[in-house]
């Protein structure tokens, strides 16, 4: 898949060039001249040559999709994930409801309650993927980096609820090690530490 890297180079403008288009013939005579000119010029043959050479070079670009996959952009906004804290494995979501509020499709709903330690926990969290437009606002607003977008883009399923419940999105405890921080919307910028003003503490 050596050719794939070039897809990551989004700066394509240097390869642009201007196409010269000759004025369109007006009189029948001009049209006839053009036919003759074009027929005598080897344009048609050049066309044939290009395709033939391409065939012989056999420089194939096909990605055989289900077997091979293109790497997705790290900022890709796929099916959501609910993350856990890396050290404790506790759920990050605190049930603040900001995602629920900001969602422009109004498709997030959460249920919360105090747990046995008196902390607020989301007992249930759903996203209605029939309505979600993958705008990323929820990931952006989340103060805990709890709801993020995953890399998954294969959303076809028999039931749209398939992806939408908390247990589907939450990192399973045994997969905690594989949990990756999301670098896209809402993640702290590399300079975040520098920008923060610290609160003076007396201890």
């Amino acid at each position: 898949m050596s050719g794939l890297e070039q897809f990551q180079d989004r700066n394509v403008s240097q390869n642009y060039y201007r196409v010269k288009i000759e004025p369109y013939p007006k009189t029948p005579w001009e049209k006839f001249k053009r036919v003759v000119r074009k027929s005598l010029k080897p344009d048609l043959l050049i066309g044939l040559k290009i395709t033939l050479l391409e065939m012989l070079r056999f420089n194939i670009h096909t990605i055989q999709y289900p077997k091979e996959k293109l790497p997705v952009s790290p900022r890709f906004r796929g099916i959501h994930r609910l993350l856990r804290l890396l050290e404790s494995g506790n759920e990050r979501c605190i049930g603040c409801g900001l995602c629920e509020k900001i969602c422009i499709s109004n498709c997030i709903r959460i249920d919360t309650k105090p747990d046995e330690n008196g902390r607020k926990i989301p007992t249930e969290y759903t996203i209605n993927f029939g309505r979600c437009i993958f705008c990323g606002y929820c990931a952006e607003v989340c103060p805990e980096l709890a709801i993020v977008h995953g890399q998954e883009y294969e959303y076809a399923s028999e039931q749209r609820a398939q992806f939408a419940m908390k247990e589907d999105m939450l990192t399973p405890l045994d997969k905690l090690k594989e949990q990756k921080e999301y670098p896209g919307f809402g993640a702290p910028t590399p300079a975040a530490d520098k920008l923060i003003k610290k609160t003076p503490l007396a201890y």
Binding site: L52, E54, F58, I60, H61, T62, Q64
Partner: peptide, 13 residues
Amino acid sequence: KVLAFMQRRLGPM
């Protein structure tokens, strides 16, 4: 197949 090769594709696989 030929069309595909000429278009840098693989065609039916």
